[in-house]
């Protein structure tokens, strides 16, 4: 049986095709203005017997393509446990939200937390800050790693932090130190969220922001336990969605 897992997120649409539990293909596209159409391309790309959708567009996708839907929380749990069978927790920092998940045996979710309404501490936050600093995202991460100390940033709110950063730049503060401070502030917030759900290592760090070396370094430094970054960090949700069908069938 071939299952298509679709993760329709705010930044990207990811797909994973499983044939009897083995990954046979995967793909990633930008969500753009019309994530549904991006997903439709994937639905056409390979034959499949079932579809499971996840991500914020899961219900829309289920209506459009049929199949079932699971939340990102469940999907990330299952996906991470497949890639790293010893994992006990997952951190996913995506475009607009952050999730921390504590796992039991077999990737079963035992506790989780998601950030509230705003973009504080997400990929979006980093994008806005990079723009305020005049860096690309990659440059900001490189500079952040290079700086030995960071400027402390007091606002977590994207809007306030942006003006704080602009103010610091105007005062002549070193942009690399600001870059480090920004990453540090997200890491701090993320680490306390991990504590609240009693996350134990190994921790799987997934989602778009897991590609940011500065964030990976800071989380690894602050977390008690191993931090593992899957090679295709973005497709963990789609993989988990596809796998969750099997998990449900076994229940």
């Amino acid at each position: 049986m071939r299952v298509l897992g679709l993760d329709i997120g705010s930044r990207s649409v990811d797909a994973v095709w499983l044939e009897d539990g083995r990954i046979v293909d995967w793909a990633v596209a930008d969500s753009g203005f019309d994530p549904g159409s991006a997903a439709a391309v994937f639905v056409e790309r390979n034959a499949h017997d079932a579809i499971v959708s996840t991500g914020y567009g899961r219900h829309g996708a289920r209506e459009r393509f049929g199949g079932t839907a699971v939340t990102e929380i469940t999907a990330y749990g299952v996906g991470a446990a497949r890639l790293f069978p010893h994992a006990f927790s997952v951190l996913d920092i995506g475009g607009q939200d952050t999730k921390v998940i504590s796992l039991g045996p077999g990737g079963k979710v035992t506790d989780f937390e998601m950030n509230d309404k705003c973009a504080a501490g997400t990929g979006k936050f980093l994008e806005v800050m990079a723009r305020a600093l005049g860096f690309s995202l990659e440059e900001m991460a490189e500079q952040g790693i290079a700086a030995s100390t960071g400027v402390s940033i007091s606002s977590m709110c994207t809007v306030f932090a942006e003006s704080e950063v602009t103010g610091l730049v105007h005062r002549g503060e070193d942009r690399a130190r600001i870059a480090r401070g920004l990453h540090e502030s997200i890491a701090k917030r993320t680490l306390s969220s991990l504590k609240r759900v009693n996350a134990r290592g190994p921790l799987v760090f997934a989602g778009g922001v897991a590609k940011n070396p500065a964030m990976v370094a800071l989380i690894s430094e602050g977390f008690e336990g191993d931090v593992l970054v899957p090679e295709e960090a973005q497709t963990v949700g789609a993989l988990g969605a596809a796998l969750s069908l099997g998990a449900a069938a076994h229940q």
Binding site: V70, E72, I73, T74, D97, V109, F112, M114, D116
Partner: peptide, 13 residues
């Protein structure tokens, strides 16, 4: 939308 995700995830758990 956000609440629905959290609540659905809670129910799945």
């Amino acid at each position: 939308g956000q609440l629905a995700t959290r609540i659905e995830a809670f129910l799945e758990m």
